[in-house]
Design a protein around this nucleic acid. Structure first.
Lengths: 341, 341
DNA sequence: CTGAAAGCGCTAACAC
DNA sequence: GTGTTAGCGCTTTCAG
């Protein structure tokens, strides 16, 4: 065996056939006589041949790759979605090229362009900015695009999303009905005006209005979505607003920080302060008391996204497809108990 | 503008130069006169030209991609490592192709082969089996390989690892010294005999021996690493072994399950039962009481892995490089408090 | 049943 | 300074 990897040419020479024949036994794309087939197979084994997908891609204009651009890989929400997408794409012969935009639209656009330069067959995107016309960009780059979790600011797009509005409303109502008449909202700051963030605030307002409480902007906070900010804002509330007896945190890190602050201050939950938040799967199970949470259906979202990608790849002219799933509200009942039954 | 994406040829025609000239202004690889350069640039703009990386790759034998094969993307350990690798690779012009082996060596080998067919420039692997000779496989496939977190069962390899042995030993000693003389170990079952799992048991034994306690196999459990199994095993211990007053969980899901079981059974921690475990970042902060944990240095591991990959890409003949980092032991002190100061 | 050969988009000698 | 052209490894028409 010579240096480097064997090519179709090496195999052809060794088997005493043309490269066309080798290609055809490789892809079962036309009939080849028993004898020739066997000789080719042997030659492939002997040369340890494995086909070069790059050359194939150049010729066929199909790379069998999908570009995936998400804003924060360290957020379990996104990694779990990828986790559930992966087997379906893999199964269908596609690989994922992974990019993290870090919530930065400059970087994001750069990545989308690079992925298209790479000739990915499609892009899955969780967009970071309402100012960018992603749909137009995708058209310009001639690359199918499927959105996930956040809506782009355009018309006519494919995507998989999750409405939490109703669940947030339910959660807040749950607090109100159990006697917590002054519920604050700690939301992500909205500099990036995601649909997702807006929707959570809407759910909060829905609940108050339904219970004849006028939403008061003094109780609606917008802070960057980090543990630290959740902690500090909760501390502010404890110090300055003794009337507040419930809080909804619109993001998992905020929930975590706020909860931690309550624990550190020895507050009894939910008697002195009721708290409900968004949460990663599993967290709500180990807090004491268990944190009521709004959980997104990660598995379904990942699977639906992958399936939608495949559908779009199969038929690029598909009319805009949108899948909308609903979030789930978990109370403080023990979950594992039943699941290990 | 015609259908489909513009090629270097279209640009050349429009600018009235040869493709060579276009290529050279594109890559600044030889001098081109001011006038020609300008015309090419204009033509590129007009045709919305963007270069085809696949063709480039075929020609230059460099795809600027790195195959990443990990065993479980839903484990925050791995996704956080990727999160920290990404910017460094991106910066250097590399993209990650992501594969999840699901702890299955059949699948894993398949993926490695596909990645090589894709001509990735290197592979980063967290191997799943001690029975596979990964180093030989990599040589056969003529693809540089860097290992992460788990050692392959071979000699002479590049990799970034983390020793937890000492930290586990410290943690267990901490329990012993605070009066918990009968500490059990709930370890992952070892069917996959990873170096990582072995090491954790060694740390446990170290601590006992140093305190003149003979490790008793009755107190060493091996179960699949899931929340459910942690819960059930902890329940078994509570029921059958009242003498046990401390437990070390060698995996984050096991810690979670065991802790939950203690909470459900109203055990006072650490008075009645002391518990220390491996943990994902952030979890240990919201349990009550805070769970003492052994934390791996995710950021450093990710960054070192990315850097090592780049080093190997630059010089494929590099003698085996291994970076070994140490895990950190977190007591139940509040962490956020100081970090938001 | 099989082979010859054109070309996918790009780079890089080699020429002038 | 710039153009010509031979491939990179593969698929696929067109001819046998």
């Amino acid at each position: 065996m010579e240096k480097g990897r064997a090519t179709i040419k090496d195999v052809a020479r060794l088997a005493g056939v043309s490269t066309a024949t080798v290609s055809h036994v490789l892809n079962r794309t036309r009939f080849v006589s028993e004898g020739a087939t066997q000789r080719v197979l042997d030659a492939m084994k002997e040369t340890r041949y494995s086909s070069n997908y790059i050359a194939k891609a150049l010729r066929s204009n199909k790379t069998h790759t999908i570009g995936v651009v998400i804003p924060d890989l360290s957020n379990p929400f996104f990694s779990n979605i990828l986790f559930h997408m992966e087997p379906i794409l893999q199964q269908a012969g596609y690989m994922m090229i992974l990019c993290d935009s870090h919530e930065n639209h400059k970087r994001e656009e750069e990545m989308i362009r690079r992925l298209c330069g790479f000739q990915v067959d499609a892009i899955m995107l969780t967009p970071v900015s309402p100012r960018v016309d992603y749909v137009q960009l995708a058209e310009q780059l001639d690359c199918p695009m499927v959105f996930m979790d956040r809506h782009p600011n355009s018309k006519n797009y494919h995507g998989v999303f999750c409405t939490a509005r109703n669940r947030v409303a339910e959660a807040v109502e749950m607090m109100i009905r159990s006697g917590h008449d002054c519920v604050a909202l700690i939301n992500r700051d909205t500099s990036g005006i995601y649909s997702v963030v807006r929707e959570r605030e809407e759910g909060y307002r829905d609940a108050l209005l339904r219970n004849n409480i006028q939403p008061d902007p003094r109780y609606i906070f917008s802070v960057p979505g980090s543990i630290e900010h959740g902690y500090v804002k909760m501390a502010d509330i404890l110090r300055d607003m003794p009337e507040v007896n419930g809080v909804f945190c619109a993001n998992r890190l905020l929930s975590l920080g706020a909860l931690q602050c309550l624990i550190d201050n020895g507050k009894r939950i939910p008697e002195e302060m009721s708290i409900v938040g968004f949460s990663a799967h599993n967290w709500h199970k180990v807090t004491t008391p268990r944190l009521s949470s709004v959980l997104e259906p990660l598995k379904a979202m990942g699977e639906e996204t992958a399936k939608l990608l495949l559908k779009v790849l199969e038929n690029p002219a598909l009319p805009p497809q949108q899948v909308v799933l609903t979030a789930e509200l978990i109370g403080n009942a023990s979950i594992v108990r039943s699941s290990i039954q």
